[in-house]
Design a protein around this nucleic acid. Structure first.
Lengths: 213, 213
DNA sequence: CTCGATCTGGAAGGGGTCTTCCGGTTCACC
DNA sequence: GGTGAACCGGAAGACCCCTTCCAGATCGAG
């Protein structure tokens, strides 16, 4: 019978953890496009060790952010279960829009589809399912305008992410104001017609990473 | 006495114009971060000729987009003079937000400050002055909410630019929907309080190119 | 303590962009 | 049309990033 994967050496496991810790810091501060060597440097290991543990950048991204994505989906679930759906909706939107300010890398991950990374995509989908529930309840409760679509969420993420991206503190303040505008636009009082959304498949397709041009 | 700058050779002038034409195309399609060699290739000249005419990328950007920036300021002036200020406001916002869709490079230029490039910045300022007039008139006419700030304009540009950026057609549709949300949020009916803006100086400072980190 | 398997870090190799240099060519003045 | 200056394009050099390789260090089982 095959011996199965043996336990890694203690120092190897330690280095792997150091790399993950460093990735959380570096991706959080500078985004997921930062040079891999910077992650290795911050972790205090050689570049080869990083490459051995995470051959592709996506591997490191997946390992670094799968916990964050789970927390995101959990937050959506909590909001969907909130007894005050409209307040929960506003709170969730604020939470989502402030993510790129705290963690630039995760902000990018949230608005990027990684079709090959199951650990991220399954949790992202769970988050979306919970958000759909939240939207339904917020409409029923009367706070949210009826023509709001759950697929407006990536739009809102992209919009506020575009403001936050530059990473200056002044823009963080400005992003809050944008959230204010958007939430007021989402309120049930607004009844003007809205341009339609593209089919969700196309929308999410457009967000996939590294289009093989 | 000094002879002054002599007239350039005809072929040199022709090549310079070819480079500008190519830059309009390439920057428009792929943004202002495209490799310089691609501009030279499209223009049918060598890389050295490009470097000689425009030593820095900013030089080419300035020469390529100063006309666009003038057109932008003219459009703002026309809107400010429109007899229906609120309609003009909506039209101007739509115009501005759709720019990155038609011309990706100019979309980036509009949300980036080039402190050293007078040709761009003076026209940008003129556009802002006209927009301030437009905002005042739209408020007086009653269509625009009183707490809208002219300095919300870069916010709106960044927000819709963030959606458009990826360059997929599905996102263009989505961006129109975002504009719809934002315009309804700008309408006078909305009276909820908004988070404040940062001081304009800091806001525009945050948009400056290539922060000397 | 010994020894082999595992792991490590630096260095070499390959791709990409920007800048600089230089022999050859083209223009325009006379 | 001849001549000198202006101009051209490709190639070389420098830098940055990622990937691969390998001689040596380290761990831990026995």
């Amino acid at each position: 019978m095959t011996p199965g994967p043996r336990r890694p050496r203690a120092d190897a496991a330690r280095n792997r953890q150091r790399l993950l810790d460093a990735a959380v810091e570096v991706f959080g501060e500078s985004g997921i496009d930062v040079p891999m060597s910077e992650v290795a440097r911050r972790a205090g290991v050689g570049i080869a060790t990083l490459a051995r543990n995470f051959p592709a950048r996506e591997d490191l991204i997946a390992a670094t952010f799968s916990a964050s994505m789970t927390a995101y989906a959990d937050t959506a679930a909590a909001a969907a279960a909130d007894p005050e759906p409209w307040r929960a909706f506003c709170g969730f939107i604020e939470y989502v829009c402030r993510i790129p300010r705290r963690d630039r890398g995760f902000g990018q991950v949230l608005t990027t589809m990684f079709p090959g990374v199951e650990a991220l995509e399954s949790e992202r989908q769970r988050g979306l399912r919970e958000f759909i529930r939240l939207v339904r309840r917020a409409k029923e409760a009367g706070g949210l305008r009826p023509d709001f679509s759950p697929h407006d969420l990536p739009l809102i993420m992209l919009a506020t992410g575009g403001v936050t991206r530059a990473g200056a503190p002044a823009l963080a303040v400005a992003a809050d104001r944008l959230i204010g505008y958007l939430l007021q636009a989402c309120a049930a009082g607004n009844t003007g017609p809205l341009p339609g959304l593209p089919p969700p498949r196309e929308l999410y397709r457009a967000l996939e990473i590294s289009r093989p041009g």
